[in-house]
Design a binder for these strands. Structure first.
Lengths: 376, 376
DNA sequence: TTGTAAGCGTTATCAC
DNA sequence: GTGATAACGCTTACAA
């Protein structure tokens, strides 16, 4: 005991005992002061803090976690750290975590197995909460249910709807309403909806991560007529069969390219004249709604190849508002997920009692850029 | 004691004692078997493993870290999780870490202060190693030196060169040699070099993260004549003064736009005819080398605006090979950092003795795309 | 309000 | 090679 207090300053990491000795109090008091369990701002308080600072004391998290089974860490599991939505969440989450001196454990998992492995590993580390930004197509219900008893789990981006986990997603119906209203206002009379079929494990960086493509599709179908926008079922079906793509790029870009080619290139070559007909907008859509930015980019490529102009001939709205949206030429109008709010909600839901998980849907914001600039 | 062994299976997390009781050995033996400190593959080994599996036993990392001061965790600190280079590193690093059942702690820090805060926090968690992918302009020498005594630190992307930390970067001279040779082969007779001045805290997602812009610049100046490529000092200087940008987009894109505008728009309007003169390539560069993809994209925007064609009038090579490079129209030839090798090296250097840090420079790979397609 | 002391689950050290 | 036992640094009853 005496050894510790005296020898401490030499080289080893100072412990709470060293601080206690220097401040002339017991280690219990130091613990109470430093963890805020002591209210008064008196001489003892001051002495302890000074001693801690002087010794460069930092609490040993392993010991704290062991004793009080709160790890002061939360886990985030995602298939791809490079997805701009996930990256945005991480960037927003970090300051919130720092403020609570909580660490972020990151795990990458793209398959159901690796995802399960990650979840188990995080659970073994006794994280205080788990955020999962998964590919929607993965079936993790069983794993999640098993662990949700012990740790609060928050799913981001609306993967699966379970009663044991919380969920944060985007209000797809509201997003679609805003999109369709904007398109109608900008003069579009018809629209097609392009999705890439939520392919699991695909290289992301697409930007659509926050959105539930299925829900968007349903909202599109339900709402088009409300805004006087014409569509055809066959415009909105992903044609996976023929990969006619001469295009290089990510899978999502190729899908956008192929889909646009199919819509605009199949029969007539003199499209520009066709669309000037009174009923031209029934033959070819005047707008494209893409579930992520990469699809939109691929479609733009196709339109460019075909000599169609954006937005004069075809307007485009994408979802995600990734950096890609700004990099495009012309820049893309895009639905921007409320990243900061999502991060804040995730923190709230993890802190809330895990016995009452809730499913939260936040509205996205339409960022209008050149790809839907009004012409008239 | 008896309580634990008997009551364990009910609901609480099983501990090593439960496993020991079930296997009929001491907890010390269980520890040795499970942590691989025991070689034999006999009956005891089998019984212990079976018991562990049956009870769903997972080692308590907090306790392990407390006792053996190995946290089984490494920290990664970066200013922006969304930077594609950093994201790539994380994606590659994760499986390597999982194989060693080590966790990744992620910290975001864009200013010197927050960076220092993160480093201190990670050190307090006793991570086994620290990877820092910092903005080069931040001065972290002092903090790094302080902590390098205790934990091995690996800097990625060549931030500062210290004798106490390891460093992994790209061999700029080799990259530039490959770039210039390729440009010469593709018919370019002159080139300009565009950098965005490594602005700290700028929104990244640019792709240049792995490269040392200063070293690239030096290599460009030193090597152009070797490949018979003409350049002018004034072509290669960032003009920060006039922000004439009518362009929206990230700062890096605007810098690329402005720089290209300055190079190609200032005096003559009939550039295409000028460049067809015998000495036209001395008036305007026939190629642009950009230190990241976003700059290149901005420059492409400018060239497009001016009616210049890529690659016929101007060839472009960028650094980083971010998703942006593929999204561009035409797609960008880009220097691709060896992400997987960098991740592997980082693991090696962290495992190596911290007393002998080394500075490693790996070659990048030139991915040729449309922006330098040969014309002739 | 403060000090004392008993753990938290693991690994390292020591006898055997 | 195995088992008992003592730490690791912290928090928290409980006693003062």
């Amino acid at each position: 005991m005496a050894r510790k207090a005296s020898t401490a300053s030499s080289s080893s990491i100072p412990s709470i005992a060293n601080v206690a000795a220097l401040a002339g109090v017991s280690s219990a008091t130091v613990s109470r002061v430093l963890s805020g369990k002591r209210v008064k701002d008196d001489d003892i308080d001051r002495r302890v803090r000074e001693a801690a600072q002087q010794l460069h004391y930092e609490v040993n998290h392993a010991a704290r976690a062991l004793r009080s089974d709160a790890a002061n860490a939360v886990g985030l599991i995602t298939p791809d750290a490079g997805d701009p939505f996930v990256a945005g969440i991480i960037n927003e989450l970090d300051p919130l975590l720092c403020a609570k001196s909580t660490q972020l454990l990151l795990g990458i998992g793209s398959t159901a197995e690796s995802m399960e492995w990650q979840i188990t590993a995080m659970a073994a580390r006794q994280v205080d909460g788990l955020i999962i930004a998964a590919t929607p197509s993965l079936d993790l219900a069983e794993v999640l249910e098993r662990h949700a008893q012990r740790i609060p789990i928050v799913q981001i981006g609306g993967a699966q709807r379970l009663f044991c986990t919380s969920m944060i997603g985007v209000d797809s119906a509201a997003s679609m309403t805003a999109t369709l209203r904007h398109l109608a206002d900008s003069g579009a009379r018809s629209a097609a909806f392009i999705d890439d079929g939520h392919r699991a494990g695909a290289y992301l960086t697409n930007g659509g991560g926050a959105f539930d493509a299925g829900a968007l599709s349903a909202a599109f179908t339900a709402q088009t007529s409300d805004f006087g926008i014409f569509t055809r079922p066959e415009w909105n079906i992903v044609d996976r069969g023929k990969a006619r793509s001469t295009m290089t790029g990510t899978p999502a870009m190729r899908i956008g390219f192929d889909h646009a080619m199919r819509l605009f290139d199949d029969e007539a070559n003199d499209i520009t004249t066709t669309t000037e007909d009174a009923d031209g907008f029934r033959q070819r859509p005047e707008a494209l709604i893409c579930t992520n930015d990469a699809i939109a980019l691929g479609a733009m490529y196709a339109l460019h190849t075909l000599g169609l102009r954006i937005p004069q001939d075809v307007r485009i709205v994408s979802h995600g508002d990734a950096p890609l949206a700004v990099a495009a030429m012309p820049q893309l109008t895009s639905q921007q997920p409320p990243i900061r709010q999502i991060a804040t909600e995730a923190m709230r839901l993890m802190a809330a009692n895990r016995d009452c998980p809730s499913h939260v849907f936040l509205p996205s914001r339409l960022v209008v850029r050149e790809s839907t600039r009004q012409i008239r």
